[in-house]
Amino acid sequence: MTGQDQLEEARLRRALRLEADEVPPRLDAVLIAAAARTARPTGSDVMPVAAAAFAAGWIVSEMWRAALAAVPSVLGEGAFRLAIDAFTEAAIVLAPAATLAASAALPLTAAAAALIAIALGQRRTHA
C-alpha cells in the first residue's frame, strides 16, 4: 500500500467516524424487546387471516361456479351455443396470428430496421 493510499484511508476514517454531536440517545433494550414481542406475528394472529382468506376464496369460487352454471338458462340454450360457436370461430382465426406475433419478434425487428434503412436512403437520395 502506498503512502497516498494510507493518507486516503486515514482521511476516510476521520471523515466517517461518529462525531460527539452525532451520538444517539441510549436505546432502551427493554422497550425494544417489548416492541419485538408485540410486532412479531404469532400463530394466533396468522390463523384468522388464513381462515378468512380460505373462506373468501371458497365463496368466490362457488359464486363463479354458480354464475357459469346459470348462464345457459339466463341466455337461453340457443344464445349460449351461438356465443360459444362465435368465440370458437374467432379463436380459430386469431390463434395463428397470435402465434406469429409471439414468435416473430426478430423478423419484425429486422423488417422494421430494413424499412427505416430504406426510408433514410431515400431521404439522402432526395437531399
Partner: peptide, 26 residues
C-alpha cells in the same frame, strides 16, 4: 446507528433502522 447514519444520511431514518435491527436481533 453510525453505520445507518453514514448509509442513509438522515438521523431519524438511522434511528429507525437501529431500532429495527435490534428488534430483529432479539
Amino acid at each position: 446507528y453510525g453505520l445507518a447514519l453514514r448509509m442513509l444520511g438522515e438521523r431519524d431514518a438511522a434511528m429507525d433502522v437501529t431500532s429495527v435491527v435490534f428488534m430483529k436481533v432479539f
